[in-house]
């Protein structure tokens, strides 16, 4: 059994308008996605801005009201609040937020911020609690002075680490990391990522790692899902995605990874332009008349791609032969 099983998850936001404030339409932020996260792995969720990554992540931690579909945690559907309460779900599943500044209450001292989940889920004495907070600060590499300071007194990287300290405080089993490093410069990015890997090894944490940066995801994730306009376009292992991408959207994302290789700069440029051209030509083929991706079809045991119907047929026939 997977740690997390997401089945046909949909999150639609109603758009109200008109005199009676009636629901007239909806934003389909997440529109029928399914994937599984195995224990101990880092699962990457990649997509451009507005593709619904954060909404997916927030649904997994139970912050979003799900329109339909289910999210099973160890087999229990946690889209219902009752089940989450029964499981003490958020003791096991925590989130690192995309915007570190807004995720820390500006009116609270760091001590109170980090201790918040401890106070609710573990009933420690004052001294034990302080000890834990100090250790957490130590783990994320902040000094004791931080204890009585306020969030605005820290840099972006330090704030992100405070958010991480809070997320790991209760020793959770799954952490949804929503672009934990995209606001940071490269040197700090590496620091935070390595740190996340380190605590993963130590505590056996599973990550749902959300990012729009395929370079970072390659460094972190074993399995990857590519998201586009609320749907998944390609799901597979790191090797599948990076070395055998099949969907034009994935190819385009990969071509956009900046290369430091100075000698072949012109070549990369050529290739990028070529892929962009193919993307423009074929986008009508790869997306349906509403501009949305087709359903996923299995092309190998791990690898699924949202192929257009005629190509999908080829693979489903092959599967029958096998």
């Amino acid at each position: 059994m997977s740690l997390i099983e997401i089945n046909n998850l949909k999150v639609h936001y109603p758009i109200r308008s008109g005199f009676f404030n009636r629901v007239t339409d909806s934003v389909k932020a997440v529109d029928g996605i399914s994937f599984n996260i195995e224990k101990g792995q880092t699962y990457g969720l990649v997509g451009e801005s507005g593709s619904g990554k954060s909404t997916t992540g927030k649904s997994v931690v139970g912050l979003e009201k799900v329109t339909s579909g289910s999210i099973l945690y160890n087999g229990v559907d946690i889209t219902s609040e009752k089940n989450r309460k029964k499981l003490n779900y958020n003791r096991d599943v925590q989130m690192i937020f995309q915007d570190s500044l807004s995720s820390l209450n500006p009116r609270k001292r760091i001590e109170d911020i980090i201790a918040e989940p401890l106070r609710n889920f573990e009933h420690l004495s004052k001294n034990e609690e302080k000890m834990r907070v100090l250790r957490l600060l130590d783990i994320v590499g902040l000094s004791v002075d931080a204890l009585y300071q306020y969030p605005h007194q820290f840099s972006g990287g330090q704030r992100q680490r405070i958010g991480i300290a809070r997320a790991v405080a209760t020793n959770p089993k799954l952490i949804v990391a929503d672009e934990p490093v995209s606001a940071l410069d490269l040197s700090v990015q590496a620091q935070v990522l390595n740190f996340m890997k380190k605590i993963q090894r130590e505590f056996g944490i599973t990550y749902l790692f959300i990012s729009h940066d395929l370079g970072v995801v390659r460094h972190m994730c074993n399995n990857i899902a590519i998201m586009n306009k609320g749907r998944l376009v390609e799901v597979g292992s790191r090797d599948d995605i990076y070395n055998h991408p099949l969907h034009i959207y994935t190819k385009r994302l990969l071509a956009a990874i900046p290369q430091i290789d100075v000698d072949h700069r012109e070549e990369h440029r050529e290739k990028r332009l070529q892929i962009e051209k193919i993307y423009q030509e074929q986008s009508s083929k790869y997306y349906d008349q509403n501009g949305l991706a087709y359903p996923l079809v299995k092309v190998s045991s791990m690898h699924s791609v949202a192929l257009p119907p005629q190509e999908a047929k080829k693979y489903s026939e092959k599967e029958v032969e096998v």
């Binding site: 927030k58 931690v61 139970g62 912050l63 003490n88 958020n90 003791r91 599943v93 925590q94 989130m95 937020f97 995309q98 915007d99 807004s102 995720s103 820390l104 209450n105 500006p106 918040e116 989940p117 609710n120 889920f121 958010g163 809070r166």
Partner: peptide
């Protein structure tokens, strides 16, 4: 709508 409220919810407050 700010994330610190979301963070408090996931912290079990």
């Amino acid at each position: 709508k700010k994330d610190y409220v979301a963070a408090s919810i996931t912290s079990g407050t």
